[in-house]
Design a protein around this nucleic acid. Structure first.
Lengths: 265, 265
DNA sequence: GTGGATCGGTTCATTATTTAAACCAAAGGT
DNA sequence: ACCTTTGGTTTAAATAATGAACCGATCCAC
């Protein structure tokens, strides 16, 4: 791993719950030497990627992000596009729709949409990080990612989020194969109790899978009818998002999808 | 300069007008070796800070930015706060108000607000980069920055943006001293013809100057009365922004400001 | 107060990474 | 069919990163 990667990896420790981190803590979290972490943070601070608060206090994310995010959004209106597709998706299914994108070895929610149809719904948080092994989105991504990446994820610790979370790598692999066959990944109470979700992959410009779109519904509302609707709509949204975000769907996926949707390729 | 800084500096070449840059071009822009740039871009890409489009094509800003910007905004609601203060400022002055933040050796606009009072107005662009030597905002920042930073900026090339742009470092230094004395920097047609702007510094948590708030008006509308209003209001907004964004105003500045505003410190 | 633990920050010889220049193969343009 | 430029790769040589030990300041229990 190069030095730049090390530096950037530090940014990954900031989250909604830990927005301010001190030098010692960062050292512990990263497992690197204190002098190393100090230098990295100093360089990041010089460029505005982190900033210090108070005198000799903790670090937090810096002021460059609003600017760079604005430029990114100007170049690739992901958020806007995703929001549009998701609101349609949740309207047609009546359930919560969300999209997440892979960043390194984590998956994070970039956009979501709630339906007004029901009083209860699955709720999400912006920029929420979700696990690969316990979610349908995670499975959708893994099912279409290189084996080396799958190995990397499955060889790491697999947290038992709920009673129903599957933590056996072999069984997870079987599920991934199933997802690859059907183009759709499913998870029932694997990430949160009483949530049944369906997800499909989203591909980038190089036909690599870099994210997923999903619909999450309370288990109690899931009927065969609703499931059919969700399957069709999620898959359709996955194709649409890939196209709108400038990506390309691999041929194998495209032909299976067309078959499932009963449409010409 | 460390490797991390070099890597991050590459991100600075992306702009609203150049959202996609190839390897060769990046090599030229940065002045670094091609292999170096290639490795840096590869590492940035691994972490999602840049991404490639098509097969073996150009690079653009990556997908991490929406996420990190959301986290930054959750920790420090800069944009929201700035927007609020600026809209008040432009309402009271009847002219365009904007705030910019220093990032390395560039200054970029993070937020602005137009007045509905007049049919003509000074217009801005989001995430616009502005020069230090030719703008009131730039002068406001330099006037309260360490001498080493001022030297760095003034020893670089000073572009003649308009007929009236002052490019003589010595005269610029005099203007900076003037700005430090009065707490307010001024620029008449230095950046764009027929624009008269006033700016004040904004300080961070360590009492360092990291940005500026400014009001820009057409030269034709500038009267002594308006100028008085602007001076008072910009200065007041500068203190307010510093406070709301968690910064501290140096004592020397605070006392001068109180005097100018005719208020108790 | 006093002693110990922890904090942010610094130093320096050792070590490992980064760099530069030359070299590919492929794609475009003339 | 040529010359140029593109993205990408290799190598020894140079440079930057590392880790352990070391500061002084702060904090906390006693």
């Amino acid at each position: 791993m190069g030095t730049v990667s090390k530096g950037l990896s530090l940014l990954g420790y900031f989250s909604r719950y830990r927005s301010e981190i001190g030098l010692s803590e960062m050292t512990r979290l990263s497992g690197m030497n204190k002098a190393t972490v100090y230098r990295l943070l100093t360089e990041l601070a010089e460029q505005g990627f982190v900033e210090q608060i108070g005198t000799g206090r903790e670090y937090r994310l810096g002021p460059v992000f609003p600017r760079l995010a604005a430029l990114r959004e100007a170049a690739v209106p992901t958020r806007e596009v995703a929001q549009k597709v998701l609101s349609g998706l949740c309207e047609r299914t009546g359930e919560t729709a969300h999209m997440s994108i892979r960043q390194g070895t984590t998956l994070s929610v970039v956009s979501f949409s709630y339906s007004a149809l029901h009083g209860t719904r699955v709720t999400m948080e912006d920029a929420e990080q979700i696990a690969f092994h316990s979610t349908s989105s995670g499975h959708a991504v893994l099912a279409f990612s290189p084996p080396t990446f799958v190995d990397e994820i499955l060889s790491g610790p697999l947290e038992k989020k709920t009673e129903q979370t599957e933590t056996n790598p072999e069984i997870i692999r079987e599920r991934l194969q199933e997802a690859a066959r059907t183009c759709i990944a499913e998870s029932v109470s694997g990430h949160e109790m009483d949530v049944h979700s369906h997800a499909c992959p989203v591909f980038d410009a190089r036909q690599g899978c870099y994210g997923a779109v999903a619909v999450a519904a309370p288990v109690a509302r899931m009927t065969p009818d609703l499931q059919n609707t969700i399957r069709t709509e999620v898959l359709r949204s996955s194709l649409e998002l890939t196209r709108l975000l400038g990506g390309f769907v691999p041929d194998t996926f495209k032909s299976k999808a067309s078959e499932l949707l009963g449409e010409p390729a």
